[in-house]
């Protein structure tokens, strides 16, 4: 019934002698919210870059939305959305200009962009802010807007790199509502976070330590396996022994 949209098999990335990501294998299903956790420097970013087609793996296999990460990076890019805490939107463009720009680079027609942007602006309640520069928006709004822009072209998978860092608790939850909505529409969510309570919101999570996936399961089962009261303890238990950081 479930259909895997991300599959990796012994995916590895080496930089010289340094093995940044070592033989990671997992599958993520359509519409799943997959939490990708790890300590600073565990190899999360490197792994995520390979999955987004930005970095060619050293060995192993991976397909994203059915496309091969070695050969079909262009198709991969068409089928994924990406949002990070650092780069999300152009701050010196207005809300509408950002939507139009990102709609444009993903090849939406003017008509599609029009309907999409109206829909998005209503959903986020940004009617008053349409003509304002993004830089003037509060951080929480920016993050919600950039998520909506990342899924504007209805990608099969959206990669979120610490999307809620520094955001207030209420906006953080509103953000997760957006994630849930997208998942309900069948979008697969691949998310990294340093908030352990957010790890609980994921269907399944993996915890990476020193380039290796040390644990991968539902939050419930992970807590049971580690006899932990919350994800914080699970994470601490696994990452405490980490040899490298950043």
């Amino acid at each position: 019934m479930s259909e895997a949209v991300i599959t990796t098999d012994k995916l590895t990335k080496r930089f010289g002698d340094f093995v940044a990501v070592s033989e990671i294998s997992f599958e993520v299903d359509k519409g799943e919210i997959f939490g990708f956790l790890g300590a600073n420097g565990a190899g999360k970013t490197t792994a995520m870059r390979m999955l987004c087609g930005l970095s060619i793996p050293s060995s192993g296999k991976a397909t994203i939305a059915g496309f091969d990460v070695y050969k079909q990076t262009e198709q991969i890019k068409k089928n994924i959305g990406y949002m990070s805490q650092k780069f999300s939107l152009y701050e010196d463009l207005t809300v509408l200009e950002n939507i139009r720009f990102f709609g444009g680079i993903y090849g939406l027609t003017d008509k599609q962009i029009k309907t999409k942007s109206d829909q998005l602006i209503n959903q986020l309640g940004l009617q008053q802010e349409v003509k304002k520069l993004v830089v003037s928006l509060p951080l929480g709004w920016k993050q919600k807007l950039s998520f909506s822009v990342a899924v504007l072209h209805e990608p099969k998978i959206v990669f979120l790199d610490e999307p809620t860092g520094g955001v207030d608790p209420v906006t953080r939850r509103q953000f997760w509502d957006l994630i849930y909505d997208a998942a309900d529409r069948g979008v697969t969510i691949f998310v990294t976070t340093h908030y352990m309570d957010e790890a609980e919101y994921c269907n399944r999570i993996s915890i990476m330590v020193d380039g290796v996936i040390k644990a991968l399961d539902t939050p419930r089962k992970l807590k049971d396996n580690f006899h932990a009261a919350n994800m914080d303890e699970v994470f601490y238990e696994l990452a405490r022994g980490a040899k490298r950081s950043e």
């Binding site: 790890g38 300590a39 600073n40 860092g165 340093h194 601490y236 990452a239 950081s245």
Partner: peptide
């Protein structure tokens, strides 16, 4: 000022 922002939970502890 925000010494632990962007830092993983273990290092924060």
């Amino acid at each position: 000022d925000e010494p632990t922002t962007g830092v993983d939970p273990v290092s924060r502890k």
